[in-house]
Write a protein that binds this DNA or RNA. Sequence first.
DNA 1: ATGCATTTGTTCGTATGTATG
DNA 2: GCATACATACGAACAAATGCA
Lengths: 249, 249
Amino acid sequence: MTPADDVLIHPVQRQAGVALWRQIATALREDIANGISPPGTQLATEAEMSARFAVNRHTVRRALEELSRDGLVRVEQGRGTFVAEDVLDYAVEARTRFSQWIRRHNKEPSGRVLRLQEMAAEQRVARGLGMRAGSRVVLLERIGFADDRPVSLTRHYFPAARLRGIEEALHATPSITEALRKAGIDDYLRQQTRVTARMPTPTEADLLRMARSRPVLVTESVNVDRLGTIIEFSLGCYPTPRVQIVFEP
Amino acid sequence: MTPADDVLIHPVQRQAGVALWRQIATALREDIANGISPPGTQLATEAEMSARFAVNRHTVRRALEELSRDGLVRVEQGRGTFVAEDVLDYAVEARTRFSQWIRRHNKEPSGRVLRLQEMAAEQRVARGLGMRAGSRVVLLERIGFADDRPVSLTRHYFPAARLRGIEEALHATPSITEALRKAGIDDYLRQQTRVTARMPTPTEADLLRMARSRPVLVTESVNVDRLGTIIEFSLGCYPTPRVQIVFEP
DNA sequence: ATGCATTTGTTCGTATGTATG
DNA sequence: GCATACATACGAACAAATGCA
């Protein structure tokens, strides 16, 4: 399904002193601005548009080229043309809380717990937490939404021994900050964040509702309490180009 | 070409009190430690190894699973098994200079200029520099190496009007810091860095000597002089997982 | 775009050696 | 000696991803 029909309300005029491609570009721009073509949706194919506007496909392409240069659409060979999504800047700071991040963008944060269990730490996690591999950790896996669009997939690991009752606390509340408070941690800071990228697993792509052909940004971060004790190791997974990471020293 | 022949020096013994797969894991571990299988190289296929060691493929897989869990190798379906590469942490700080970054990892920095020219700024660049689209900018495109392995592809844009003589200065020296000094900028700071990821273009993949199926990390950063005037906008392109970006607030 | 060869991933089933009680 | 459980090892077949022509 494409919003191609809407295009009918924008007839183009020949010999009007405005190039056809400019008229088409303006029409598409308006549809995007008005929300007729919301961010992320697929536009009609070039062939369809050229039929509706009754112009050559090259003329449509000229218009799309313009919009693409302006960053309003994204043209993907073999797939189609998509309305650019508004980018969520994820600012890495000492205190980064999910709901604050989303609300700063005037969107409504929500989330869903995918997994919550105690388990043995694998090497990577153990190293992040500064423990021996196999030590007991509590894993919280969550997906985060901004206005019902998935924007993050995070795995939080807490040292079970150091944070008694954290699993029960997390069962009771969706907020990590609050659960940590119940476990005796009033405040915590992000000590280090490492960023890389990789292709998503099929499951991740489905959960984040993204194309399998686009990479995810992966963050690995360590949180400490006020004394510098490590209380959490987390792995975040963010869909590109929906999310960007911003660092301001 | 694979280092499969070397495997012959590691015969495995049955009924020796040590499981075959452990012997194989140890043999491979040694080859990696000794530099017989250097970082980034492809190991023999599972089928080849099972023939050389005269064991079942499952047995080889058991060994590879172990090494993979330890992070010594990376197994990729449809491609093969690769010795893990040492990750170059790219620490984003206010003052980030290429050669310092590489030397901090005890590697030898080098580079090559791919392009150096004056041109009109496209929208994205103009926005980064706080200028109007079409303003004149000097573009320096460079590839950076650490011990002859490509690790970065950067495009630096300088406002031509604000930095007279920058193009000539860049022609004369490979160092941006030095060229800026000639143009009257003694010191400069990184104001903001934005990170995202995308698939590399074929050209980028070739230049960075990386698989086309792995994403590149892309940084977008703005540099200012001591007064806060924007003097450079740069786009960096880094191969994953060879390079990771690290933020330490 | 399509098919093909290569390579890893998964899942059956079977057999054997070793430690335990 | 016997029964059991477990890790090890092998074989075959098919699925899925990749790269290439």
